[in-house]
């Protein structure tokens, strides 16, 4: 339970900065840091398990943390959680964020031939009732604040599936002035389903991967297994318009705040896409100080030496 916390202050946190209420022991932190280092080695420094975006994903609830600090109760809570995981991974309530061609394949997946109902998945058109968002299709700068707002409206715990190259990286539209280069630049994505469009069967496979992930996630197996985030299917040669995905340690600090504010200020008309009122600083250039990944690596070295 403890290790999945994210820090409310920074985007990218080191294990030591985890919330005090449920602070891990030193041994745990060390093994965790190792897992993190392994993960960054495997995934090319892209994914760090605790580097979750503020406001996008947080299971931290002070009351719950207090309750489970009572000795013995955590065992009971863990059992209940396992039950909940089993339930939620077998009854996805899917919110279809279907914008374009991939949305048609999503409809085909929900319709008669493939039939997502077989795995207990139900499609609901409102975010308040759903726990899985399937982003199927291109997301543009005009749509992105809406997607972010709908994501924020979904109750925790929630998961996101990026279906199709457009949702993953922007596809061949990624260099165009109006297209967001991948939804993981503003939503944390759990499962990537590649293809243009992916076949309905492929989507089903992706949902099965999500089921596995949910089962491993809450008790920490997922994080400890060295594969904290699914690898984004892309080659190194892609230029990504200056934006880094959520969870990247080098991501500009004010970016998530700017995106959140822009999505909150949606109105009928007017300037609504830039988080206009507040100054969030330089969003595109990496920070001056050495990136968090380097800092983490240095720290890791220090722990090993001592």
């Amino acid at each position: 339970m403890a290790v999945t916390q994210d820090d409310p202050q920074t985007d990218a946190v080191t294990p030591d900065a985890a919330p005090t209420d449920a602070a891990p022991t030193d041994a745990e932190a060390a093994s965790f840091a190792e897992a993190q280092a392994l993960a960054s080695a495997v995934l090319g420094g892209v994914a760090a398990p605790t580097a979750l975006d503020r406001d996008s994903r947080s299971y931290s609830n002070p009351l719950l943390d207090k309750v489970i600090s009572v000795p013995g109760l955590d065992v009971a809570v863990a059992t209940v959680e396992r039950l909940l995981d089993w339930a939620s991974s077998n009854s996805f309530f899917i919110f279809p964020m279907a914008t374009s061609c991939c949305g048609i394949e999503f409809m085909a997946a929900a319709a008669s031939r493939v039939d997502l109902d077989r795995m207990g998945a139900i499609i609901r058109p409102t975010p308040r009732q759903c726990d899985v968002m399937v982003v199927a299709g291109t997301i543009t700068v005009k749509m992105a604040p809406r997607v972010r707002k709908l994501w924020d409206q979904m109750p925790e715990p929630k998961w996101c599936v990026a279906m199709g190259s457009c949702a993953i990286s922007g596809d061949f539209y990624r260099d165009i002035y109006s297209v967001v280069p991948g939804v993981d630049t503003f939503i944390p994505v759990d499962v990537y389903v590649p293809g243009c469009p992916p076949n309905p069967e492929e989507l089903m496979k992706g949902l099965k991967r999500l089921q596995v992930k949910i089962g491993m996630q809450r008790d920490g197996t997922w994080q400890r297994s060295g594969m904290p985030a699914e690898a984004r299917p892309e080659t190194k040669s892609l230029k990504l318009g200056g934006l880094l995905r959520i969870g990247d340690p080098d991501r500009a600090a004010g970016l998530s705040d700017a995106q959140r504010d822009a999505s909150r200020s949606l109105g009928f008309d007017g300037a609504e896409h830039r988080g206009a009122d507040e100054d969030h600083g330089n969003l595109f250039d990496p920070p001056e100080s050495p990136p968090a990944s380097q800092a983490a690596a240095a720290e890791l070295e220090a722990t090993h030496e001592s």
């Binding site: 700068v141 992105a144 604040p145 260099d175 165009i176 002035y177 109006s178 297209v179 967001v180 280069p181 630049t185 503003f186 318009g241 200056g242 934006l243 970016l255 700017a258 995106q259 822009a262 896409h273 830039r274 988080g275 969030h280 969003l283 595109f284």
Partner: peptide, 11 residues
Amino acid sequence: YAIDTPHAPWR
């Protein structure tokens, strides 16, 4: 007009 003009904070 450059085709890859950025548009903060979304791209």
